[in-house]
Amino acid sequence: MLEIKNLQAGVEGKAILKGIDLSINAGEVHAIMGPNGSGKSTLAQVLAGREGYEITDGSVRYNGEDLLDLGPEERVREGFFLAFQYPVEIPGVNTTYFLRAAVNALREHRGEAELSAVEFLKLMREKIQLLELDESLLKRSVNEGFSGGEKKRAEILQMALLDPKFAVLDETDSGLDIDALKVVAGGVNHLKHADNAQLVITHYQRLLDYIVPDHVHVLVDGRIVKSGPKELALELEERGYDWVIEEQAA
């Protein structure tokens, strides 16, 4: 589904990703862990099509297509989704209005009829229960005045509405208390099925108690230096990252 080869990218001449290789198949959950500044969020941003990053080498194939050739919105329409580490507040844009526009942009791309306000509301009521979100949030401006936990849950609500084939979750667990984490993880797990895939970027092993990955990758200084089964995450939690770095240097 996703094939990253020797991806190199940076900002203003400073290299951040120094050759990433990663292959993700349908039905799989991958986790990327790594210390601060290792390039985790840059990878997420580059995959989502954020402007301002220079891609200096490598390729990303997504279902056979060149992902890097597509604009951010085209990626979404092809089933890509990024849950933001820091969801953006947009004062004055009503959340329901925004979500309906997003869903309908996707439907239009697929040649499906637009959802009316009533149809959309029905769909949304279904989804917000999954995230245990208060319906009153939907009447507010996008992310404005939301608590940290509400913002993250709202990201997963968007994911539920857009039902992506490939989702990147960028530190969705950061700043969540354990109850909120369970709700968010429950939502993500509910959205997982055999035909889609997830890439979970996290700083803490804790998340992986609730979202169980098939593969764990360790990102250090812009490279994946170690990959392994889910047990690798536990080892990282116990021993930190230094041994991986040392092992690699050896």
Binding site: G71, E73, R77, F84, V88, P91, F98, A101, Q158
Partner: peptide, 28 residues
């Protein structure tokens, strides 16, 4: 630019994103 990217990352094209933000500003 952050707001525009966020809207595009939800599938809205750049023009629609820009209009939505402008409209919001006035709509307030």
């Amino acid at each position: 630019a952050e707001q525009i990217f966020y809207l595009r990352a939800r599938g809205l094209d750049e023009e629609s994103a820009r209009r939505m933000i402008m409209h919001a500003f006035a709509g307030e």
